[in-house]
Amino acid sequence: MAVRARVGGGERGQQMSVVVAYAWAELPQDATVRSDGTVDWTAAKPALTPGDAAAIARGREAADALGTECIGLCAGGPSAGTPSATKAALARGVDRAVVVADAALTFAGATRLGMVLAAAIDRLGDVDLVLTGEGPGVSDAATAAAVLAGRLGWPLLSGVTSVTADASGTTVERIGDRRAQRLRVAGPAVLAVSDQAGQPAPPGMADVLAAATKPVGRLELSALRVPEVAPGTVTATAKAEPAARRGQVIDGADAAEAASRLLVALRGEGLLGEADR
């Protein structure tokens, strides 16, 4: 494992880049479940998630503050290397895109994806801040970010809503577990940016046109020499069943009575505060 933690609190050199690792994956909103319980993805279209869009925006800001470049990095199946995919990131503000597009990575597990991203970052060199998108719909991407951080030997901070990068480190604000925190990272880090970090405006025509002129680099999966990860054997698939619920029905014909009965039940469960008694 390549451990890239910096020792001490040395100054960032201007050659240190900011990388935004974004996903280009089919989102589940248009996926359906077949009668055998398997998922049918044919109608699902790949796209950037709102979390990735927020991550690119925060990455752009961090790179500008540091006077360095912002690199978009994507690893996935063949669609990750298509012009649609690269332009989606380039138009949102990365200076160049680097892709690892290989059929072997289609629906790759989080461990393999995270290790591929780490190997690609090792190839890029001189990177000390990686941002990823976090948000609904792509849970494997969040776990891949954790593997990426682990492979690099860097801390992973999730739920990030604000990033302020300077010469000696990064100040991060985040929300999670019903708490709001502000943290300071002295060395390199992987930051998972929440989709609640503020959605940037969609790219305009000038951004789209500029994207066509920005460079796209490709890394071959075979050259990264990432070990295989055993995928396991699928033994069962099923449509998700709803969680067991009480199923208590209250007739709402008399609205006042129904409201009263409901609130009595909720107070009985301790779900309403003392002020309501």
Binding site: S139, V147, G150, L156, G176
Partner: peptide
């Protein structure tokens, strides 16, 4: 499957080169 747990688990999965599954 929360922020702290995922960070710890991801690092362990990387060290073991083991598949990691969420949810």
């Amino acid at each position: 499957d929360d922020a702290g747990g995922r960070a710890l688990l991801g690092a362990v999965a990387a060290a073991l080169v083991a598949p990691v599954l969420a949810e």
